[in-house]
Design a protein around this nucleic acid. Structure first.
Lengths: 263, 263
DNA sequence: GCTTATTTTGACAACTCGTCATTTTTGACA
DNA sequence: TGTCAAAAATGACGAGTTGTCAAAATAAGC
């Protein structure tokens, strides 16, 4: 690889530093509170410098979202290694979503934000692609497990049923559930104290409804959950630590390199 | 009721007019594009006047969200009258959500926006309560149908299962599905062309998984959907027309009266 | 018609964004 | 080590926003 001049290294690391400084602003204050001015002040440079890296704040948010989805993907990739049985793999992916929402709460939040609010149209083509690609791969991970279940006979599609629809169903159930848990003040009042337990139970009900073998077995399932949860949490911390290193280090391979071409 | 002076009538109707002008701004531009300045200009008054009605733009958004949930509730209330059979009622509510997302798309969007973005803390206590109350009632509608199914033996709770969890499951599935459909560019690429069909199928799979009688029957179900869909769409148009009248009329009972106390 | 209460106004300070000519810094080369 | 072109950082700019508040305009009560 080409050696970088000190200046180039500084610039690369700054891109990461900008993102780092952006996170808390977004977390407690939303996109409205993400101000170029504030970031510049905190980083002891001027707004102009930041505009050398990102054309607007929406693009900063999108960059964060891309990083978030990349982390989520890494978690998914690990999750499917935790069992050979398709149905257990699905469960592992579900748990990894919970872990994601807990240990990477900022990422989860930012992923949601980027979709709404008309951020999308203001962002740069290239970064958008990075995000979409990653998201696509996440979906593929889930799809593969469904296909495997079909392959080994654990699952048979109903007449007119499609693999994609099952993926979509689990996705809706878990994503919807987690979003509601995170943003709906009515939940507790509606009597849903343990959203996580409910989400898992409902996923299982849906898969049982499709007659995906082996059917839900409470004790076996909860044993599995306990087992993978710890592993996934450990993995999540690894991924986060990795990213932290990245941000202080010269070569931020994942994000930066993918984006490089878009400027 | 007390007779209102012309001035008072003007003020009341203005509150509605502000909301009316706010909708298109939010729709295409998000909360960031909702500017007091713009509304004032469009309504030929000054910003100060608008601040007499709403303390900030977040509160305008919240007001819109409250109106949205009220409309949704009215749709729900109508939906449950469309069948005597609990499971069909659930289906009717599901379809009403689809109709809501289609014919009241702005409302659907605004409901989502209000949750994120840290709008919440900036809004006024009173208006928040209106919204939460309505939302609670929506949940109650669904819960009642589940209870009825339990009552007539169509459904039996699994060990440790709770009514609320079932409500939450359907809620997640439909809400999550509709949000993903509306905001996820990856959906089509993931092979989910007909999100609506998938959502319905998945709800049915979940209810079948809970052994909620009568189990899913494709032809009977699709006949029912066709039947209620038209009725719900008609009802939605009624509700919208009602609201339009409100906005031009002196007595905006629903929203205004509920909010009156909060100033 | 006069007076008091209410409502509207518009200028204010403070903030934001994105641009771009100008200044500063960098690093390659002599 | 000194020179100099190329690259990067700066900061002032215009145009936008928000929320406030004393002063002006208007409505209501009598």
């Amino acid at each position: 690889m080409v050696t970088l001049t000190p200046k180039q290294r500084e610039i690369r690391s700054r891109e990461q530093r900008i993102l780092t400084h952006a996170v808390p602003l977004i977390r407690d204050g939303g996109l409205a509170a993400l101000s170029m001015d504030t970031i510049a002040r905190e980083m002891c440079c001027t707004r102009g410098t930041i505009y050398n890296h990102f054309p607007n704040k929406e693009d900063i948010a999108l960059s964060l979202a891309a990083r978030a989805v990349q982390r989520r993907l890494r978690l998914f990739e690990y999750a499917i290694t935790l069992s050979d049985q398709p149905r257990e793999r699905m469960a592992a992916i579900g748990i990894s979503c919970e872990v994601y929402a807990d240990l990477m709460a900022d990422d989860f939040l930012i992923e949601q934000m980027v979709r709404h609010d008309s951020v999308w149209p203001k962002t740069s083509e290239g970064r958008r692609k990075v995000l979409l690609n990653c998201e696509q791969q996440c979906i593929v991970q889930v799809g593969m497990s469904v296909h495997e279940a079909l392959g080994c006979g654990d699952l048979q599609l109903p007449r007119g049923g499609r693999v994609e629809d099952i993926v979509f169903g689990l996705w809706s159930l878990v994503y919807g559930g987690l979003v509601l848990e995170a943003t709906s003040p009515s939940l507790a009042e509606a009597g849903i104290a343990q959203a996580r337990v409910a989400i898992r139970r409902n996923c299982n009900a849906m898969l049982d409804g499709l007659a995906w073998q082996p059917l839900y077995n409470a004790s076996k399932y909860s044993r599995f959950v306990r087992r993978v949860q710890l592993k996934l949490e450990a993995r999540a911390k690894e991924i986060l630590a990795d990213a932290t290193a990245e941000s202080n280090d010269m070569d931020a391979k994942h994000v930066t390199s993918a984006i490089e071409g878009t400027r």
